[in-house]
Amino acid sequence: MGQVLALAISAVLLAGFYASMAYGLGLIYGVLRVVNLAHGGMIMASAYLSWVLFTRFNIDPYLAIPIVMVVFFVVGVAMYKGLVRFLPRGAAGGVQSLLLLFGVWLVIRNIAYLLFTGDDQAVRTSYSTASISIFGNSYSLNRVLVFVISLVAVAVLQLWLSRTYTGKAVRAVTENSGSSTLVGIDVERVYALTFGVGTALAGLAGVLASTLFAFNPSFGSGELLKSFVIIVLGGLGSVVGIAVGALVLSFAEIFAIYVVPSYLTAAVGFVLLVVVLVVRPSGLFGAKVLR
């Protein structure tokens, strides 16, 4: 029982990170109807940026978050203006944007490989090994911090979407871009902004990942896949959906050790995806994602 509780808390901590990771992908898809296949590449690139800032400039990864997010916001806006803008969106353009962003991912991977070689890197701060006790079990301080920061980030984003004018414009475009134009929303601007914010969230996820995992230029494909699973599980547009999706995935992964050999737990997310698609093709919440 004690072990189950310990694993459950681990799962909740992990789910926090997963939610921040999936949110960017979901936001971009919700507004632009484009699945950002470069999402995983962005997470990887941001992990490296965090590593560079730490090893070269001695900037603590958690303090680097604002810098990284600003950088990636700009990168995202630039990517929208330079590439994504030219593609047809929606169902008809799905294949094209998919392949284009896939190409971007390959390029990012290659650049990372040229700059940093294929070796594994990790950000090791003085407190990397510190731990904290919850209900008698100890957990790494990093994992708790990542969880808290993820919660804050998701909450801030939700406030932005629901309270500010710009946030409301983003939500309006998610609902219907045609009508949004009619009521005077600059849809192009909203698209660029959304791509920026979504990419900044990938940046955040990358920094958080750099404190938890070792990474190399191939890092990120699993993160992309997991983000996608979470969106399929939870649906778009609601924090609750993302949170539930993240929890389902993290619990499934962590408790899978009872069922399958440890090297296969990485495949759990995928199996979950297929099972959900077979059992509930529209997602757990009748997601608008799939239609």
Partner: peptide
């Protein structure tokens, strides 16, 4: 099961298939 998905959903599912099979 996965072909009922269209476009990006199918594609991402195939990334999953490939990775799981490789593992």
């Amino acid at each position: 099961p996965t072909l009922r998905l269209r476009g990006p959903y199918f594609s991402i599912a195939t990334i999953g298939v490939g990775e799981a099979t490789r593992l």
